[in-house]
């Protein structure tokens, strides 16, 4: 059988394609055709099968934060190019492309926000910026997040979606793991909770630093979570991986995360956890002033 002749698309066809791409989307879970509007209104969760598609940082802000409002911290930090790295295309160009694509300076946004009135220090990875990879800026912003949260005595809610360390910043990316975890260790001293939310995916250097060190670790349905990527493991052990490997149920079964929370319940569950973990702090009688004590 011969292949049909290649034909140039007619003007009509191309118009139709443009409209279709914007209006309709197929669910990655069940294949149902959904309107993009429906999906967006449902925070990228399929109404028929519950499949969680990626939600961008903007969506998470609207989903979790009161009035969707974030008072950003350290938003001006931009990457430099310490290694003069080029893989054919210079790192600086890649960064510029990522900034344009993600409409973000870097792969994380941090700041002060409120959830049901409770003030928090908030951070969310921007996966569309070079796969949410952690270079110097991400490490610095996570470090400052813990430092400011310690200073202002705020709980930390951090949403991770990252493939790991950023190769293009080499060893300095690796050092961000040590830096951010050191800051987390200092934050522990103020006895405020750190809630770690593991989104799709959380792997590599982000998984192997602060992501699993939450007082509570929460996974989102369907997320890929682990140290090594599945392809690396398969090529090392030369075996096909079992179904469900590195998925949230696997992590709960092996004791690595506390609970799996769908998007529709995420805000409530986080707020309830924050209420419990800050209960002692909130109900502690006001410390007597020096005068009344003496």
């Amino acid at each position: 059988m011969a292949w049909p002749e290649k034909t140039l698309p007619s003007t009509d066809a191309s118009e139709k394609k443009t409209i279709g791409a914007g209006v309709f989307r197929r669910c990655d879970g069940c294949g149902t055709t959904l309107t993009a509007g429906e999906l967006a209104a449902n925070f990228e969760v399929c109404a028929s099968c519950g499949h969680h598609h990626r939600l961008d940082a903007d969506g998470w802000r609207r989903l979790l934060l009161d009035d969707g409002a974030l008072d950003p911290w350290d938003d001006h930090l931009s990457p430099s190019d310490p290694l003069q790295f080029s893989d054919g295309r210079p790192y600086r160009e890649r960064v510029a492309g990522a900034q344009k694509k993600s409409r973000s300076h870097e792969a994380i946004e941090t700041g002060r926000a409120a959830m049901n009135g409770q003030a928090i220090a908030y951070g969310a990875f921007v996966f569309s910026f070079m796969g949410g990879s952690m270079g110097s800026v991400v490490g610095e912003k996570v470090t400052r997040l813990f430092e400011r949260a310690a200073k202002d005595r705020l709980p930390v809610v951090l949403l991770q979606a990252s493939g790991g360390a950023r190769m293009q910043e080499g060893i300095l990316s690796l050092m961000q793991m040590a830096k951010s975890v050191s800051a987390l260790e200092r934050f522990r001293k103020v006895h405020m909770p750190f809630l770690s939310v593991l989104l799709n995916p959380t792997t590599g250097g982000v998984a192997a630093s602060f992501a699993f060190l939450g007082d509570v670790n929460i996974a989102e349905p369907g997320a890929l979570i682990g140290f090594a990527g599945p392809r690396v493991i398969e090529s090392t052990i030369r075996q096909t991986l079992p179904p469900g490997f590195q998925r949230p149920e696997f992590l709960v079964e092996h004791g690595m995360v506390d609970l799996i929370v769908p998007r529709s319940e995420m805000k409530n569950r986080i707020c309830t956890l924050l209420k419990h973990l800050t209960h002692a702090e909130a109900t502690r009688p006001a410390r007597p002033s020096r005068r009344t004590a003496s």
């Binding site: 998984a207 192997a208 699993f212 493991i233 590195q246 696997f250 690595m256």
Partner: peptide, 12 residues
């Protein structure tokens, strides 16, 4: 990078 390592929490 192995199955057992992931099961027992290499990242953590």
């Amino acid at each position: 990078p192995g199955i057992g390592a992931e099961e027992r929490g290499q990242s953590e």
